[in-house]
Amino acid sequence: MIVLNQIKKIFNTNSGCVTAVDSVNLSIRKGEIFGIIGYSGAGKSTLIRMLNLLERPTEGTVTIDGKDLTQISSKELRLARQQIGMVFQHFNLLWSRTVFENIAFSLEIAGVKKEEIKPQVLELIQLVGLSGKEDNYPSQLSGGQKQRVGIARALANNPKVLLCDEATSALDPQTTDEILDLLVQINKKYNLTIVLITHEMHVIQKICHHVAIMESGRIVEQGDVLTVFSNPQHPVTERFVKQVASEDDSIETVEHLIKKFPKGKIVLLKYLKEKAEQPFITNVIRNYQVDINIIQGKVVQTQEGGYGSLYVQLTGLEIIPALNYLKEVGVEVEVIS
């Protein structure tokens, strides 16, 4: 559905040339929710703006639904953009227009007949949960309601792709989850391809099928979300995963665990959710001369399944054989002390 081939973006500044996006290759399948995550300055905002050529690549090609957007005329590009909706971080609503008028605006620009606009807008208002708010102005709405208007407006022209540029970063946690649930609903209802950028791993964990991690303008790791969560390969990815999985192994935390549980070994166990259905802890206690004290743990749910992490203290005579058994049944073992 979306193919980026050797995309590069160089900005000319007073202090010289700055490479914001550097030789990025991505392939995004139709109907999936694809997340792009990175810290501030990673290049993710520039990258997503090149998907609809709000930023034109310095090098490389952007192909959407078989059409290379970098090679078409300005008129063709305007038509192609109608098939690419965009939701912004700060809503970008017209403050002098009502909810109804904001959503209708994109249809008016596209030349839709007046008598066809009203039923389409009312359907979208119902879809995003704003029935009864048609005549309200943006100043009368909460942040979450404003973003719902932005989503409805982005869907007005029945796009094939929806781009979300930090669409939840200005919202509180509860409202963020509500907006993410709405995006999942829209994705399933319309089989709509959604590409979102974020600096919050919770967003990736909750709704994305695949993720790409950016640093310094490059994709440093990508894959399906469950695989990336369970086996991160790059230090930046590990930092993001630990935000959600509560695997903070900072020196202070490790030292605290060692002082509080000085005997035996402190071990971090990582496993996919299906492993949690197997009694591997019980088997260790039954079959080895080992006592296990569970310190803390968490299971993180993704669109493709769950991933768990568990800190335990092992004491006894057969710690090493017990750890070998855990590895054999597919549990990842990291000895902390």
Rank of each mutant, 00 (worst) to 15 (best):
I179F: 10
F91T: 00
E328T: 15
L323R: 07
I33S: 02
L155S: 12
I37C: 01
D249H: 13
I285G: 05
S15H: 12
L127K: 07
L180R: 10
S230I: 00
Y39K: 15
G43W: 08
Q205A: 12
F261I: 03
C164K: 06
V300Q: 01
I186V: 11
C208Q: 07
D165Y: 10
V284Y: 04
S96P: 00
L141G: 13
V329E: 07
D165T: 09
F280N: 01
E247N: 10
K160C: 01
K113M: 08
R56F: 14
K275D: 02
N5C: 03
T58H: 08
N324L: 10
K270D: 08
L257W: 12
T198R: 08
E274Q: 14
Q89H: 06
K75M: 10
G305N: 05
L310A: 12
T61P: 02
N25K: 04
Q83V: 00
E277A: 06
K275T: 09
I295W: 02
N293V: 05
G129C: 09
A212R: 01
I194D: 06
Q174P: 00
L183I: 05
N231E: 14
V203G: 11
P57Q: 01
I151Q: 07
D172G: 07
M214V: 05
R97D: 01
I336T: 00
I295N: 03
V99R: 05
L326I: 08
C17E: 14
D181M: 01
K67L: 12
L69Q: 06
S27Q: 14
V225D: 03
Q233S: 13
K75Q: 14
F261R: 03
M1L: 07
L54Q: 07
L326S: 01
S106R: 12
